[in-house]
Design a protein around this nucleic acid. Structure first.
Lengths: 212, 212
DNA sequence: ACCTGAACACCGTTCAAGT
DNA sequence: ACCTGAACACCGTTCAAGT
């Protein structure tokens, strides 16, 4: 996506002194706290500033607007999920295709379920906050990690193409979103985890068979 | 979901005279028009009222709040998608499993792509408007239609269970959301349509094999 | 360089008054 | 029964003044 899509959410000013860096961090954490305690609708810039122990004016010195606050929280969450999956991809090189897929899917589900409350809160604000752009970027990054892993799969002449990997990622995240927003129980989540593994494995098998 | 989740979005008052019914309809249509022309962020109750040719007060006589306006639009859209798929399910009875799946997936993709602009606009407001509840209800309704169809599949001792059908629906809608929000081209959409058919077919095949 | 908070603009919602 | 629009409350954002 064009840089301009994101620039409106970027920090307005970079802190140069230490107390300023602490302020920025405090505001960031306050955002997540207010998001979780009051919910997205009742998240107010004044309330966040209050919680962070600064005035609204200070908040606006570092975040250009309310969206930027939530964007930062969303971006960080996606970054964490990404990082976990990249590690798994690294560790699953040269294993059989089915196991690769299982590990990635399980890592994704676990990362989301482990942060279920934040995930749900962020789904709620994603749209107003440039969520699609972040998701697009995240998808590209995950696709690359998956492709690097899939390259090393034994018994696989041609690895699945870009498109198939993206479809798989969208299917996983869509199903997870649905379950998390519906407030699925831990038992449900375990079952969903198994089913998503099966779904992705059979899709990947079908795609690679079709390509051969 | 509990009725109370939805009740806040229901009409405050039912029109009894004809001009009132016309007013309600005008407000509903104005909502969609403003949504498409100005975007979700710049949709204002005053603007909707203006476009509908009434005053804000009148708007609030029939819709309890801004969310209710958007809820109505979202609900109607889902209703249309549902209806189209139910018809397809009806027509695909007794056909082979693979074809059933293909027809349903294609109907879903076509319904969404045919209304791409509205879909994207509604994704943007879904969260603030009780979207998850509507989606949950829609999923139940579609699941029933799919189950009725799957019952009639030849060469299938045990049809896929509830859970698998719901996972499949969530995967489809998640992948479509991702593509629509990313502004995928018509060519991309055609390719995605084929891939989703393959994904769902192979998942259903795997699930029914595992159950046997 | 960083912080404050009163002031401004805008928008969702209401309600007394009209037909 | 239905409609109007000025008035109110609240919230995002700014900016002149402070340390």
């Amino acid at each position: 996506m064009p840089a301009s899509t994101l620039i409106a959410f970027e920090a307005r000013k970079t802190p140069v002194q230490e107390r300023a860096a602490a302020t920025v961090q405090a505001i960031f954490e306050a955002t997540i706290q207010v998001l979780l305690s009051h919910g997205a609708d009742r998240l107010t810039t004044t309330r966040v500033a209050e919680r962070a122990g600064v005035s609204v004016g200070t908040l606006y010195q570092y975040y250009p607007n309310k969206q930027a606050l939530l964007f930062a929280a969303f971006d960080k969450h996606m970054e964490e999920v990404c990082a976990r999956i990249e590690i798994v991809c690294d560790g699953a090189c040269r294993k059989p295709l089915g196991e690769m897929i299982a590990q990635v899917v399980e890592a994704y589900v676990d990362a989301k379920v482990g942060r279920a409350d934040i995930s749900v809160a962020l789904y709620h604000v994603a749209a107003e906050v440039g969520g699609p752009a972040v998701i697009k970027r995240t998808t590209q990054r995950l696709r690359k990690a998956l492709e690097a892993m899939l390259e090393t799969a034994p018994n696989l002449k041609v690895p699945p193409d870009k498109f198939a990997v993206e479809v798989m990622l969208a299917a996983i995240s869509g199903a997870m979103r649905s379950a998390l927003e519906a407030g699925a129980s831990p038992a449900m989540m375990r079952k969903l985890r198994e089913h998503l593994v099966l779904l992705c494995q059979s899709y990947m098998a079908a795609v690679t068979a079709a390509q051969a």
